[in-house]
Amino acid sequence: MGVSLTKGQKVSLSKDGAGLTRIFMGLGWDAAKKGGLLGGLFGGGGGDIDLDASCLVFDDAGQPVDQIWFRQLSGVNGAIVHTGDNVTGAGDGDDETIKVDLSRLPASVKSLVFVVNSFRGQTFDKVANAKCRVVDDTSGVELASFTLSEAGSHTGLVMAKIYRHNDEWKIHAIGEKTVGKTFHDMMPAIQGTL
């Protein structure tokens, strides 16, 4: 089991200096349950929640290099691949997954910022168990996880950043609330994390 991160925490993804090559960021969520006996009796589940995971790629100067999202499932010459859009949040485990081959990223790539936004504008008070985890795609070992339980009227979250520091990949658990139906709306908050 990997490190369970708290908001603002930064940790290395490499163990004992071993080279990490392929990872995936799994993002998950559930529809919040409506309270009360009558709500449960009359189909009072939270309904479908269409959150979208995206990965924004930046260079040393903080300039965007590429974006991987449900309308562009591959980026940086195939080094980053989004496995597809989940429009309901149904099911256990990761609802959306973004695979990254770190060894294929050009040296000019400094950071990858992972965000989740509510495409239909549903606020996060309708979302439960928003979480992300980084997994070594070669061994299947979970390296780090980050859970957000903060409900609210926001429609987006800047979840985490994976960045290169002294030839080592690190993760920064961000958890910043923001507003936006796509990552385009969230760019000021995203660039503020660089």
Rank of each mutant, 00 (worst) to 15 (best):
M1Q: 11
S4Q: 13
S4N: 14
T6V: 14
K7R: 15
K7G: 00
K15H: 07
D16N: 12
R22P: 02
R22N: 12
F24G: 02
W29T: 10
W29F: 04
L41V: 15
G43F: 04
G46C: 04
I49N: 06
L51G: 07
D52S: 02
S54G: 08
C55M: 12
F58W: 09
A61R: 08
G62R: 05
G62H: 06
D66C: 03
I68A: 02
F70K: 10
S74A: 10
V76I: 08
G78E: 09
A79M: 06
I80F: 02
I80P: 01
T97E: 15
K99D: 13
V100E: 11
D101T: 09
D101E: 07
L102P: 01
V113S: 09
S118D: 14
F119H: 12
G121I: 12
Q122D: 15
A130P: 06
K131A: 14
D137K: 03
S139R: 07
G140H: 05
V141M: 11
L143R: 08
A144L: 12
F146D: 09
T147K: 14
G156S: 13
G156E: 14
A160T: 14
A173V: 10
I174A: 09
K177L: 08
K181Y: 02
H184Y: 04
H184G: 07
D185Y: 01
D185K: 09
D185R: 08
G192Q: 11
T193V: 15
